[in-house]
Every structure is written in structure tokens, then in C-alpha cells.
Simulated assay, not measured.
Amino acid sequence: MSTGTVAQRLGVAAATLRSWERRYAIGPAVRVAGKHRRWLPEDIARLEEMCHLTARGVPPAEAARAARVKVAGTSKVEKDVPAAGAGQTPGGPATLPLGPVRAECRGLARAAVRLDGEAVEALLDQAIEDHGCVVAWEEIIAPTLHAAGRKWASAGERYIEVEHLLSWLVSSALRRRRKPLRPTREGVGPIVLACAPGELHSLPLEALWAALTERGLPVKMFGPAFPVDALREAVRRVGPSLVVVWAQGRPTTAADLVTAVEGVEWGVRGARSHTALLVAGPGWTSVPQAGTRRLTALRSGLDLIEQRLAP
């Protein structure tokens, strides 16, 4: 495997692998023409052992020595590691319950459990750059976030630090994605994005913001817990073509939100326009007012938005 492939698989930044090779002589045994590194199965096994030990608090130099020796069973270094709760990363085998997922997803999960922010950041940027926002979100980021949530929910809140670090870095990576992959759409009113009042979970809406930006569509993000009156005023001042409201839990102000968006007229007198409301998130599942307004996933939601914007 190449260094980039190994880095994705293990959830370690490629720069970290090169640093380990330089400092601790834990590099690939073979190089091909042009000095390209190629990692063999035994090389990768040593890296996996090093990742395992460093995640448990073993200093890198000591972990590299143990990984090179590759003693079968429990090495002396592992015996000297403090017991659970004394400086380790959270629990057990230090894995998240992912199921069948992409290799990049597994690498991201491993880096998150190790609380390796640098590696998580690099893997997120690489996933978005290689695959675009939609694939990166649906096939790599969201499965990892869901697995982190399931893990701390079933482990007595021992993994909350993993989910918080991952969520913050995902949010940062999505906001860095400002380069449109398509020409900026002309003659289209902005799309307003906001969370329902009291709703603090905004990551899926941030993914929608990044994907819309990627498609060259004008978008304004108002973020978490946006009050109804503020939404009404934003519609009046911005004159958006569409408004998308996200709710993780059932919004208590569903009817007010519909009125706040679709009950407002904007534009010059004699040619007033109305804005259409779309809703997203599991909180709207049992809301009768949602109806055909619901966006059920990022890719299909983008397609529906494109249809609504078509002349």
C-alpha cells in the first residue's frame, strides 16, 4: 500500500507516518523506483501495534521499539501500561461500532478515538477534497458521528470527548469548503438555512451549507436555535428563494415556523414574492405540516432544492 492509503486505513496523518519513520525507524521495508514508499502487510502490522500502544499512553519511542520487536501476545511495554482509567483513551478495544463502511471511515474513527485532532483534520480535508461534500458526509463523516454517539450512549458517557472533538473538527472542515465546483448560479435568490428554536445540533445543516456552496448556489447560514421572530425578519430582509429549517427533536413551534416563512411577502410593491419553506431532520417526521417539504437526506435534499430553483 502507499503511504496515503495506509494513513487513511489507520487514521494517522501521512506526515505522522513519515515522522515515525524518520524518528523511530518504523518505516516500510521496501521502496520502489522513484523512492516511493510501499507498505507491506508486516509493515502495516507494526504500525497498527504502534497506534494501539500510543493510544494507550505509551511514549512513541517506546511504542516503536515494541512494535518492531512484535512480540506475540502481551509485550512487556503493554504490561507496564497503567490500568483502565489511568491515562488511557476511552475503553475496551478503542474502536467504534461502524459495521460495513469505507476504509476512510474506519481511519477517521480510529483517529477520533485516539483524540488525534491533527489526523482527524487531515483525514476530513482529504475526504472532502477527494469525494466532495455529499459523499464525504454520507459515507464517511455521518457514519463515524453516528458510531461515536452510539458508543458513548452505551458506555456510560465515556466517549463524549471523542464525539465533541470529532464534531468540532467536522464543523471546521465543512466551513473551510468554500470553493464552488460549479459556476456561481446567477439570478437565484439566496437559500436561508437555520435550526429550529432551541435546536443546538447544527452539523447536518452545516453539511448542507457546504454542499450548496460547492454547487455554486447562494446560501446564508443563521445557525443553531434561531428564534421564529428572527427568522421572519431574515426572510423579510433577505428575500430568499428557499428557507430550510433543521430540527433534531420535534419543534414545538412548527406552525409558527411555516407562517414566519410563507406568510411574509418581500420585494417591490406590485411585484411581491413569497418564500418556500423546506424542513429537514428527524424532528419533522411526526409533524403534519412537514408533508412534501421534508428533505430526507443530503443528496436527495440537494436534488429537491435544485428542482425547486429550476425556472
Rank of each mutant, 00 (worst) to 15 (best):
T184R: 13
W284L: 05
A64E: 09
Q8K: 13
Y159G: 00
R237E: 09
V243R: 02
L309E: 05
V135A: 04
E186H: 06
H131A: 11
R236H: 14
E78P: 06
E78I: 03
F226H: 15
S19L: 12
R23L: 11
K220L: 15
V287T: 14
P143V: 04
R293P: 11
G132F: 02
G57C: 05
E62G: 01
V238K: 01
E121C: 01
A86L: 13
A14C: 07
G34N: 06
V279H: 08
A25Q: 08
L309M: 03
I128A: 10
G216I: 02
E121K: 13
R150A: 12
G281E: 05
V287D: 09
G57Y: 04
P100H: 01
T74D: 10
S2L: 14
P93T: 05
P60Y: 12
S167A: 10
R272G: 06
R232P: 01
P227V: 06
L98F: 07
P197T: 09
V58P: 00
T285F: 02
R308S: 07
R65I: 11
R114V: 00
R9P: 05
G189Q: 05
V192R: 04
G92Y: 07
L217Y: 07
R250N: 01
T292G: 14
Q307L: 14
V235E: 14
L145P: 03
L10A: 01
R46Q: 12
Q8M: 13
P197A: 05
R215W: 06
E42A: 15
I44N: 03
L174Q: 01
V264K: 08
A45K: 13
G156R: 08
A147C: 02
E214S: 12
R68I: 09
A45L: 15
V6L: 08
L40F: 07
E48T: 11
G57T: 05
G99E: 09
P288I: 09
L212V: 06
P180Y: 00
E129A: 15
G156H: 02
R65P: 00
C195L: 02
R150G: 02
F222Q: 04
G263L: 00
G11A: 06
L200M: 08
V228F: 14
K35V: 07
I141R: 04
H52S: 10
L40H: 11
R38L: 09
R178A: 11
L181H: 13
A247C: 10
A148V: 08
V135N: 00
L115P: 01
S171M: 04
D303N: 06
R215S: 14
A271M: 12
G249T: 13
T54L: 01
V81C: 06
G283I: 11
P204R: 05
S241E: 14
W266T: 05
R38W: 13
R31N: 08
T296E: 15
E104Y: 03
H164V: 07
E214G: 09
I191R: 03
V162I: 01
L309D: 04
W137V: 03
G99L: 15
V6K: 03
V162G: 02
A86Q: 15
L295K: 08
S286F: 11
R269G: 02
E129K: 13
P183E: 12
S273P: 00
E157Q: 10
P59R: 12
K220V: 14
